[in-house]
Design a protein around this nucleic acid. Structure first.
Lengths: 337, 337
DNA sequence: CTGAAAGCGCTTACAG
DNA sequence: CTGAAAGCGCTTACAG
């Protein structure tokens, strides 16, 4: 591979001029710039990130930490982030903790700290105090998606209100027997999204003076299969069968719909179902849901990171507005029979 | 952040000794090693990858190029790869072309070449001649998953045989009217997996002297929704309705099952469906399929990369055995009515 | 606008 | 086993 020296000698200028011409920083005459461009082109020269980063302190690389890439929300946010990053000419280094503490530990105590990153984006991870400390020590910007971390920039939706809205929608249709399908503790990853959503559901029920029955507060692992099984158990019980479900994710809502169908119940005839997410399959299932624009959240996190890096200013005010969501009414909800 | 010098002075040794002690390369006395370890620990020292890579030529980082992370196969392979890489102490830099030529171009002509990577893993991408050339120029090992590239290490399953097996399974159950659901040109990404699988299906049909009807060779975009629509069109036609479907992916098989149900057809009573993949949802749908162990393919690609890197030898024989798959018989297939 | 030179933080022959 | 020193390939004041 050719180095900057090769380009310099071929163009008949110094390496300093090559560096300036190619990076666009500093003054360079048009003539020099043209010569350099040509020489670089002919040699197939590409700058070495390692050398460039070492000298400048900038890596053009952001770290992205996820609990898994196997769930819809995570892969969709990731898709949005990679796209935005490529457009900006940045690399994305992926750290997948896979829900394993061993992996998580090496990510935070080692990989993240090796100065190859300009910034870090975390996805639905509640940073522990020591982890926060470690990130602070490297003095890099951190943006969190999917939950609030004090003192850190955050992209998140208003889980409480989203769930309340979902419940209100059912209530306004005339439902009274509304169940809630949330996430089990261990699968709520870190932020207990499920609880925030459960709180919103309960709030709406209270406002409407409807009872919240303990046996209708059920939890699953955020997967289609997990939800299928739990909902099936509830629906198979002929006594106290709910007429509607608020589900904390679209994938769980799909599981609920499939369970109802397998029991011979029609949706929305016998059961109304509303989800939260905006999953592509929602259309096919006719799922009423609240779209949280996951890919856009990924892109928004990237924008925020790039803005901070552009500002050269670490001590800014962390922003924390809610990311906008969208109510999508389809055919899985209707007045009760 | 402390540098190697800080560690050296605190430990009372030279930077060379610190480097050797921490990397484990070269001889270091136990006493020195202990002093260095302690000093590093106390200072919270972590080696700078950029400096280390620049000096040694090794980055402990592999590039992973995917067409998207939104489809099951890709995210599952990625999950397997990240896990294996973290265990080896390597970073994974993700390049997602998102099916956009603009992104693909910047990945291959720029990002991949900046010498921050020790190796590259490509996922279901047929490299164009210029791209192959560019990769060769950086002289890094390349491992391809999901298709054969001449002269490059490959992890792939035997698509032809898998599809033939799927068809033979249906034939042996007594089916004669078997349709095939493959991928549309534009969505076969690069390797025309669909065609290899279609060829296998046709081979099995020929062997059994069963006719392959043109109108039963249908294609979709590898998504549940796409398959749902196409299969629904076929099944809604009361004349010449097939009694079974071979689907080129599990997600498309789910679409086929859902389409059948929505038309009031029972699976497997009125329609048998077999998929290819080993998707987690297969169990819930009772889908008969051929598991291609996607996560293991990701891990296998990593093993291969690490083996090559360990060998310090670029001129080895590219291996190209077929990755093992597994036939999983469930309840979506049965003899025809 | 341009170049010589220091420096980024490591690794690794080389000599001892 | 250990250290002094060169070198990896850039960037960026500094001086002109």
């Amino acid at each position: 591979m050719p180095s900057i020296k090769d380009v310099a000698s071929r163009a008949g200028v110094s390496v300093a001029t090559v560096s300036r011409a190619l990076s666009g920083k500093g003054k360079v005459s048009e003539a020099s710039r043209a010569k350099v461009r040509r020489a670089a082109e002919e040699l197939g020269y590409v700058v070495s990130y390692n050398a460039s980063s070492l000298a400048s302190g900038r890596s053009r690389n952001v770290g992205f930490v996820v609990p898994t890439v196997g769930r819809w929300f995570f892969s969709t946010v990731l898709e949005g982030a990679t796209s935005a990053l490529i457009d900006a000419g940045y690399d994305l280094t992926l750290y997948n903790t896979s829900g394993q503490d061993r992996h998580r530990h090496s990510v935070f105590s080692d990989l993240l700290l090796r100065k190859r990153l300009d910034a870090v984006i975390t996805l639905t991870l509640k940073l522990r105090p020591t982890e926060l400390e470690q990130l602070r020590a490297v003095r890099k910007p951190v943006v969190a998606i999917g939950g609030l971390i004090p003192g850190i920039d955050t992209i998140r939706v208003d889980d409480f209100n989203i769930a309340a809205l979902a419940a209100e929608h059912l209530i306004s249709l005339g439902h009274r027997d509304i169940a809630f399908l949330g996430g089990t503790e261990e699968f709520e990853v870190d932020f207990k999204l499920g609880s925030a959503r459960e709180d919103g559901y309960e709030f709406a029920m209270d406002q409407a003076e409807l009872p919240v029955r303990r046996e209708w507060l059920i939890t699953a692992d955020f997967t289609v299969q997990g939800a299928y099984q739990k909902v099936r158990n509830v629906l198979a019980n002929p006594r106290h069968r709910p007429t509607a479900f608020v589900c904390a994710s679209d994938e769980m809502a799909f599981g609920a719909i499939l369970a109802a169908r397998d029991l011979g119940l029609s949706v929305p005839g016998d059961l109304s179902v509303v989800g939260i997410d905006g999953h592509e399959l929602g259309e096919m299932f006719g799922l009423t849901t609240i779209d949280q624009h996951a890919a856009r959240q990924g892109a928004a996190a990237v924008s925020k990171v790039l803005a901070i890096l552009g500002e050269h200013e670490l001590e800014h005010d962390p922003t924390d507005g809610f990311f906008p969501t969208e109510f999508v009414a389809r055919s899985s909800t209707a007045p009760p029979a």
